[in-house]
Nucleic acid binder design. Structure first.
Lengths: 325, 325
DNA sequence: AAGCTACTTGCACATACGTGCACGGCGGTG
DNA sequence: CACCGCCGTGCACGTATGTGCAAGTAGCTT
């Protein structure tokens, strides 16, 4: 209940000491023992300082995959779709849940260097991105913002709690301003959307979306046995599914649907969805997609065909599935 | 699956395993024990794989200093000279040698993210940069090169062994092509330089120098009690020192001298030196200077005045000296 | 085929690191 | 002033990681 933002005189010094400790540890390879001596404190305090530095995002660790390490088949995929693959190693024995967790954790760390001060990141919230949100690495940024790409309300709830939970995790991790998007995921009537889209308060958000530097999204798939959040929580009804089926839809990004060839024009449902048009999305300079599980493969193929993705974070087993045709 | 018989790992497989282990360790926070289970090997092998990954530069660790952590005085320095400060913490008790070692180690790591594929780095070899060379973190790059900025020969030796030792350390660490510069550090006669500078083989090197993306240099100081390499190893004679003194020189970068106000025009010695003119150096997009020890302060002030530096790596004690005026 | 060299591997031990716990300082509260 | 709760600390212990060593293997040489 109380605001923890209080400024203890120690709080600022703690960061200073943590930075110093982290520098001595990571840049000068001193042991914690030696650092303790330099800081006139105990080794255990140094251990705590360094964990703090990591948790606070003062330390950034990247694992770099040299391009030539990637198999030829994957290189062809990369070139064909202008996408950078980030393959997450996961044991074949892992179940879907573990797999998603591990991909999400990796995604959170891979994402980190993509976002910085003065940038805007768009979030297409959903079950995959929610998992990513739970593993974010904090990072200090300034003048940055997080913008919600797709509405959250549905026929049962306003969805705001769930969506804003996700959004604020991102906001907190990066110290960024969070821009909510208080509209339904799908409108009942396209006309309502058109009218609402003329409102200045909404257009403000749409403008921010248009100018985002990074888009982060998972993939929805109406075909799956394990459907995404959007397909199980009362967002769509029988008729909607029929409509999607009739349009030969294979997946969606931020509630906007596309076909196997990547096209999304003339899909009636899109007139009612709250997310950004895919051709607009494709103009964002970095478009990060997180995928886990073979059930998303058809959706993934479509998204690649539509060139929606510049960085694909995907587990090993699924990327292998992508190569089998 | 082949069963128990150990397979002879090619170096390529080793890298693959190291990458996987590093990813699991740093991105997914698994313990080495757990990674060993996934890789069907022993924990100790995983420990070795991960050290290998670090040594091979597959893992990059950065400590980031949030801008607001820097004291106001230092911020003013940064703004005044358009320089980014990288302050290396070193205990006050450390002697000059330890201090240099630690600054050099930090410098090597700070440098790492500045250099990448398709780039050219110019090296002004000398005692400081030599120390940096001993601590380089390997990094895989392609189509990159290292170019020597100042000649090495003097009246006693060709200096090639020493200089090329330094150069090749950089080349090895980055997998970059090394471009030597086989000329004397200082010519006896300016005319000789002019003539030689018209040779195509030399002009090739000069052209590469002009197009470099990163310049790395220490500072020479003719005034110091602890003079730089150039001043102790037979590169200059009595008369030269007199000439420098008459020109009010406070320091040099790659054998090119400048005064306290940063000017370098009309310094006779510069007509004879092998390094790039300072106004040319100042056009390089990233210019990294490594400084350790208060004896270099006058030289540092001059180099800042000349705007030769975009990134200054400096120990704590020395940067404090910079503020005292 | 045997012998040699230059590896890599896993074990056992050594070292380094993380963390529960009890102590003590400090600020707020009655 | 006494009390209380909160927080940071160092200690001691448990866990995680690093490394010398002996054994084993592949690739060569003789």
């Amino acid at each position: 209940m109380k605001a923890l933002i209080a400024e203890h005189p120690t709080s600022s010094e703690r960061v200073r000491d943590a930075l110093r400790a982290a520098h001595l540890y990571y840049m000068q390879d001193l042991t914690m023992e030696a650092i303790a001596a330099e800081l006139h404190t105990s080794r255990s305090s140094v251990s705590r300082l360094i964990s703090y530095a990591r948790e606070a995002g003062l330390v950034e660790i990247q694992v770099k995959t040299p391009a030539e390490r990637i198999s030829n088949a994957l290189q062809r995929v990369q070139e064909k779709y202008h996408v950078t693959l980030h393959v997450v190693p996961v044991p074949d024995s892992a179940n879907e849940v573990d797999r998603l967790e591990r991909v999400a954790m990796s995604a959170a760390r891979i994402l980190n260097p993509f976002f910085d001060s003065n940038m805007t990141m768009g979030i297409a919230w959903g079950s995959t991105i929610s998992a990513v949100g739970r593993h974010l690495q904090p990072k200090v940024t300034h003048n940055s913002q997080i913008v919600q790409l797709n509405g959250a309300a549905n026929t049962r709830t306003t969805g705001i709690v769930y969506a804003s939970e996700i959004m604020s995790r991102f906001g907190n991790a990066y110290g960024a301003y969070v821009q909510q998007f208080p509209v339904p995921a799908f409108f009942d009537d396209p006309a309502t959307k058109q009218v609402l889209w003329r409102e200045r308060s909404i257009r403000r958000v749409l403008d921010i979306q248009k100018r985002m530097d990074v888009a982060l999204f998972g993939l929805g798939t109406p075909l799956s046995d394990v459907p995404g959040h959007v397909y199980t929580s009362g967002y769509l009804d029988e008729q909607d599914f029929a409509s999607l089926s009739a349009s030969n839809v294979v997946g969606d990004v931020a509630t906007v649907f596309y076909r196997a060839d990547g096209s999304s024009a003339d899909v009636p449902m899109n007139l009612r969805s709250s997310g950004p048009p895919l051709d607009q999305l494709a103009r964002v300079s970095r478009r990060v997609c997180v995928v886990s599980g073979r059930s998303r493969l058809p959706a993934l193929r479509g998204a690649l065909a539509a060139h929606l993705i510049t960085d694909l974070i995907i587990d090993e087993a699924t990327v292998h599935g992508l190569l089998e045709d």
